[in-house]
Design a protein around this nucleic acid. Sequence first.
DNA 1: CCATAATGTAACCATTATAGTATCATATGA
DNA 2: TCATATGATACTATAATGGTTACATTATGG
Lengths: 139, 139
Amino acid sequence: MAANSRFAVAVHALALIARRPDERHCSREIAASVATNPVVIRRLLAQLQRAGLVRSSRGAEGGFLLGRPAARITLYDVYRAVEEGGFFARPEKGNDACPVARRMKGLLDGVFARVESKVAPELRRTSLADVVRRLPARR
Amino acid sequence: MAANSRFAVAVHALALIARRPDERHCSREIAASVATNPVVIRRLLAQLQRAGLVRSSRGAEGGFLLGRPAARITLYDVYRAVEEGGFFARPEKGNDACPVARRMKGLLDGVFARVESKVAPELRRTSLADVVRRLPARR
DNA sequence: CCATAATGTAACCATTATAGTATCATATGA
DNA sequence: TCATATGATACTATAATGGTTACATTATGG
């Protein structure tokens, strides 16, 4: 899947914001902690913004804030925002003349759906507030 | 994750073999059903062979057989053979000077481990024999 | 009103993974 | 000995991702 570091970086970025939820956090600050480029952070947070997980404001004193309280953002929300097609489920081509090939797609879709139905509740169990609680205290 | 079509193609190939377990199946035959190249199939089945899921023999009348009965090959076996690093778990870099970054890796490892612990039993529930049962009857 | 500082975006390059392809060595069975 | 198969290597093409630069836009504060 395009299973990536995007999920990991997204959680990391959100945790940084959630740790001090009243301050605005700029992409440069977050990028420094993640050890990447500010543009990469802005691209990723743009996805999270579309999902309502963060809000941004421009200009001096601008930056990012959470879109809702950390207790109401779960890791599943992040996963959904970032992994558009799910961790699994790639299109497989298959020769339509072959009866086995014709059935495989539906069969695998079923498998993936069942896996997803186990993954989702597990990810929903952990909120961003839970993550922040397990981080070192501020200062 | 390098979440890929590799898992899907592997299940497809194994199902073709398992449907007629007493015949040898060549890479050309399997490639035709999957609509890809025989070399791609041989590369993939080489991975499955290392995991003991198939055996091969060379020469005329050569080809692939299952390494053990279809009832004793689960989708989890296939997933492990094909997705070396798991669907999740990418290395994230992080700035070691940042206390949040230092904790993120361990924290995410825990999340991924818990997710994996839900995925594994679900994939173990389905054997290759189950897959074959859901395919159209031979002939 | 201007300098500063931030996001939003586009463009481009590098890297990586994967698939596809051609080719040849090797092995096997009739 | 010939036909046929895997095993292995090498090369190309493609797509996703990440990194970088650059610039337009927007907001704040003096």
